Simulated assay, not measured.
Amino acid sequence: MTSQPTSLPEQRILLVHAHPDDEAIGNGATMAKYVAEGRHVTLVTCTAGEQGEILVPELEHLAADRDDALGPVRREELAAAMAELGVTDHRFLGGFGTYRDSGMKWHPEGHAVPADEIHDNAFWRADLTEAADHLVAVIREVRPQVLVTYDQFGGYGHPDHIQAHRVATYAVALAAVPSYRRDLGEAHDVAKVYWTAMSESRMRDGLRRLRAAGDETTFEGMDPEGPMLMASPDEDLAAAVDAQAFIEQKMASMRAHSTQITVDGPFFALSNNVGSQAFGIEYYRLAKGTLGPVGPEGLETDLFAGL
């Protein structure tokens, strides 16, 4: 039996993401919904996204191969995005600047792989135990019942997403061991761990609608009938959080990441053409814990289901 923080709401969720903007794209609606419902939402971001591609021409000088000053800008964008969602507890793993964005390149098969050149303090090169210990401290402080991160492939192969998965998975295990690093706080066992996901059937349907409308540029190169590396087969899904009522907050949080996401980019195009279901219903795979009560579609409608 573990105690819970007396100053925090009874239900608490911790999300572990690789870079600023990942959280808004994947879980922004869920985060806004849970904040509105009085649940405590904690976001841990593992890097500042220093290697990100800059979409604002007047800020291109901040790029890693020029002034290398994008990190502080993305830190401010993240703060603005969290304000849109109402999230007040957001942190960088180990503190801002501890781990740097590792960068990536595209493999011919359409997924990400590590870049040819990686900085010494890149997250991809982080010592796993050291990085996990930073997260253990957060887990034991906040004592969440639910943790959300990526699957073992990081969604599409980005090395920082894969490392975030590894760190989160290891930290959950270590945090539950009473004799491990007592200096990091009292042991806590996270009841449920989810991997963020995209529904394959919904993704295919959305792309079909876009192509039928003559849009060939949104998610260019993706065939609605072809491989869906970024999506999960529907039979692997465990939960669908319907937060369509919070789609505007999600879109506002995405707009806050202005160096990375444009309003005429693929995410906004998909939402505008397909409707709020495209990004207002967020899907998850259950990686740890017991499936709770499910809705009509056979999926949990709440990540706290059964707790």
Rank of each mutant, 00 (worst) to 15 (best):
P227L: 08
S201C: 06
P178E: 08
L184E: 09
R211V: 03
I139N: 10
A173H: 13
Y180H: 09
A243L: 09
D205L: 10
D189R: 14
S201T: 14
D242K: 10
Y194H: 03
G157R: 01
E200C: 03
T218M: 07
D160P: 08
L237A: 04
I162Q: 13
V138I: 14
A171S: 06
D151L: 08
E200Q: 15
K192R: 15
V172P: 00
V138R: 06
A213M: 10
R209A: 12
A197W: 01
E186N: 11
A212V: 05
M228W: 06
M203Q: 13
V177N: 14
D242V: 08
N121Q: 12
R208L: 04
H158T: 08
D205A: 15
L207H: 11
A240R: 13
R204I: 00
V138D: 07
A171P: 00
A176R: 04
E141Q: 14
S179I: 12
A187F: 02
D205C: 01
G221K: 03
V136L: 00
Q163V: 11
A239K: 00
A243V: 09
M198S: 04
F153V: 04
E225F: 02
M198I: 12
F153C: 00
E200S: 11
Y170A: 15
T149V: 05
F219E: 04
P178R: 05
A122M: 07
H188N: 01
Y180A: 00
E220Q: 13
D189H: 12
D133I: 06
D189Y: 01
T129H: 04
A245W: 03
L128I: 10
Q145K: 09
A231W: 08
Y194D: 06
R208P: 02
F219I: 02
I139Y: 05
V142R: 05
Q145R: 13
D236Q: 15
D236H: 12
E130F: 04
L229C: 02
S199G: 11
A175I: 02
A213I: 11
H134K: 05
D183N: 14
P159S: 07
P227C: 07
T196G: 13
G226C: 04
N121L: 13
A213S: 15
E130S: 11
T217S: 14
M198D: 01
A212E: 15
D234N: 10
A212K: 10
A191D: 11
R166G: 07
E220T: 06
R202Y: 06
A132S: 15
Y150E: 09
I139P: 07
E117S: 12
G157H: 03
W195S: 14
H188R: 01
S179E: 14
G226T: 00
I139W: 11
N121C: 11
L210E: 03
E141M: 10
P159H: 03
F123E: 09
D116P: 08
D236G: 03
V241F: 08
A168S: 14
S179P: 05
D151P: 04
A245Q: 14
R166H: 14
M228Y: 05
V136N: 00
E141H: 12
D160C: 09
H188A: 08
R208T: 06
H188W: 14
